[in-house]
C-alpha cells in the first residue's frame, strides 16, 4: 500500500486532448516515510487561486463547504450567503491547511483522500476506478478535472 508507484507519462497534455473518452492523466504517488503525496502538478501547470475558490463553493463541483469551514468565507457569507453560507461541520476546518500539509500531500488528499484516510467520508475528486453503481451521467468521469484539482489546490495553499 505504501509502495511508490511510478506512472508518469511523458506528455500529459496529449491525454487531455482525448477528452471525449474521459481518460485520466497519470500521476505519480511517492511515499516518503509513510507520508504519501503527489508532488507534481497533474497538468504541469499551476492552479488558478480564484477559479479554485469558485470551485470550492460551487455545489455541483468541489462543494468543499458542504463539510469544511473556512473563516475567510464567513465575512463573504454576510454579503453572499447563498454562495458562501451554510458551511458544514463534518470535516476539519481548512483554516491554515497549508501549514498542516505540504503541497503534494494536499494534492493527494484532493485526488484520493482514501489513500491516506481509508475510512473517510471525503469523496475522491480525481478517481474513476473501484466505484460502485456510479450514475450514468457520472460514469468514468472524475468529480473535478485535473486543472480544477490544481485550481482548488492553489486556493488551499493560500490558507496559511
Amino acid at each position: 500500500m505504501f509502495g511508490a508507484v511510478s506512472l508518469v507519462v511523458a506528455n500529459p497534455f496529449t491525454l487531455l486532448a482525448q477528452d471525449s473518452k474521459q481518460s485520466l492523466v497519470n500521476y505519480e504517488i511517492v511515499d516518503v516515510i509513510q507520508s504519501k503525496s503527489i508532488p507534481k502538478s497533474l497538468t504541469g501547470k499551476r492552479g488558478d487561486k480564484k477559479r479554485g475558490e469558485a470551485l470550492m463553493i460551487q455545489r455541483s463541483k468541489g462543494n468543499c463547504l458542504a463539510c469544511h469551514q473556512v473563516s475567510l468565507f464567513e465575512e463573504k457569507a454576510k454579503t453572499d450567503p447563498n454562495a458562501y453560507g451554510d458551511m458544514g461541520e463534518v470535516g476539519p476546518t481548512l483554516d491554515k491547511v497549508a501549514k498542516r500539509y505540504k503541497e503534494g500531500q494536499l494534492r493527494l488528499l484532493l485526488v484520493d483522500a482514501k489513500q491516506v484516510f481509508p475510512e473517510t467520508i471525503m469523496p475522491s475528486f480525481y478517481r474513476v476506478e473501484n466505484l460502485h453503481r456510479v450514475g450514468k451521467k457520472f460514469k468514468d468521469k472524475p468529480i473535478l478535472g485535473p486543472q480544477e484539482i490544481e485550481d482548488v489546490l492553489s486556493f488551499l495553499l493560500s490558507l496559511k
Binding site: 467520508i121 475522491s124 478517481r127 466505484l131 460502485h132 453503481r133 456510479v134 457520472f138 468521469k141
Partner: peptide
C-alpha cells in the same frame, strides 16, 4: 457499501456524522 461517484456509504452520514 460505498456507492456512486461520491463514493459514500450510508454509515458515512448516518452513523459517523
Amino acid at each position: 457499501q460505498r456507492r456512486g461517484q461520491l463514493d459514500m456509504a450510508c454509515n458515512h452520514c448516518h452513523e459517523d456524522n
